[in-house]
């Protein structure tokens, strides 16, 4: 029991937390952009799977890592385009279209994996950890904080970049207005649909990248259904973080910590909690979190509502 009170344990938790949070950070911050424009995309899970699969397949065939990441992002964008076509242009119910994207993501990736890949031997080469000189040598906390791969580090840049985009650019301003008062934007002569398309494609591209992280920067193999609910967690993160990019970053870390602790506590022979209870922790925490942010009406006013011109 005393083992879990050591610095070593804490350092491990920090490293694992950040790595496990990374795909959720990408997906949730992308979803913030999408939801700020009034589009609720619950197809994140499917889009992440597509990104994981396409990224892996590209790497497997070409061995070119940047190209593989690009493929992961683009496949996410492509899936987002399908979503946007139905949810924005055709104005179908966003939740239903998202559910369909999830089915398609699982079905297509599994079908193609079984048809074309199957035995992938050694897997692929993944993004290497980058050792930051001096800092990575700090006892205990050097490795978890300063010896991660580029994608993990890049999560630090994502909240400021997306924050700047949303709050400091006219694009972002209009985008948020589209989520709150689409009619006003429309009257001002700008296309609501165009902004929503932009938001969804940014969101799905980031979700694709989050999926690509799983096969190109963490594990080095594709496994059917390997996202294991991370896309759904990202949805919960957005609500918990009240549609803020920086908030999503921290809430994702919180979820990453739950994942990490779950695995660490199971491995402690002195702790006798059914492992299923530990595994259920992040999901219970989400529900509790929703109760804590009660009555905060920060949700974009037209979230989930298709815009129809008068």
């Amino acid at each position: 029991m005393e083992h879990i009170l050591t610095l070593g344990f804490l350092a491990t938790t920090i490293g694992a937390t950040w790595r496990l949070a990374t795909p959720i950070i990408f997906a949730s911050i992308g979803e913030v952009v999408s939801e700020r424009a009034g589009v609720l995309n619950i197809g994140l899970e499917g889009i992440m799977l597509i990104g994981a699969f396409v990224g892996f397949w590209t790497m497997y065939e070409t061995g070119h890592l940047p190209l593989a990441f690009l493929a992961a992002v683009l496949s996410g964008v492509a899936a987002g385009l399908v979503f946007a076509l139905f949810a924005i242009t055709i104005k179908a119910n966003q939740i239903i279209v998202g559910a369909a994207i999830n089915l398609l993501g699982l079905g297509l990736t599994s079908f193609l994996f079984r048809t074309y890949l199957v035995h992938t031997g050694q897997g692929v080469r993944i993004a290497p950890a980058i050792d930051i000189p001096l800092l990575s040598g700090i006892p205990y906390f050097g490795a978890p904080l300063f010896k991660q791969n580029l994608l993990v580090y890049s999560t630090l840049l994502l909240p400021p970049i997306v924050g700047f985009l949303l709050y400091r650019t006219s694009f972002g301003l209009t985008l948020r207005a589209v989520g709150e008062h689409p009619k006003a934007v429309d009257v001002a002569g700008r296309s609501v649909a165009l902004y929503r398309y932009g938001a969804v494609l940014i969101g799905s591209g980031l979700a694709g990248l989050g999926g690509g992280y799983l096969t190109l920067a963490h594990a080095n193999q594709f496994v059917e259904g390997m996202t294991s609910g991370r896309g759904f967690i990202a949805l919960a993160v957005v609500v918990f973080a009240r549609w803020s990019p920086a908030g999503s970053f921290f809430v994702s870390l919180l979820f990453g910590m739950f994942y990490a602790l779950q695995l660490q506590l199971q491995a402690e022979p002195s702790i006798h909690i059914p492992y299923q209870a530990l595994q259920a922790m992040p999901y219970l925490a989400t529900i509790v979190a929703l109760l804590l942010v009660r009555n905060r009406m920060d949700a974009p006013a037209t979230l989930g509502v298709p815009y129809r011109k008068a």
């Binding site: 399908v82 139905f86 055709i90 179908a92 119910n93 239903i96 279209v97 559910a99 369909a100 994207i101 999830n102 089915l103 398609l104 699982l106 079905g107 297509l108 599994s110 079908f111 079984r114 059917e224």
Partner: peptide
């Protein structure tokens, strides 16, 4: 697993 693809397509075309 093809059945998932068909189900997804059914939903999309229905909506």
């Amino acid at each position: 697993v093809l059945v998932f693809v068909i189900q997804g397509m059914v939903i999309l075309s229905v909506v």
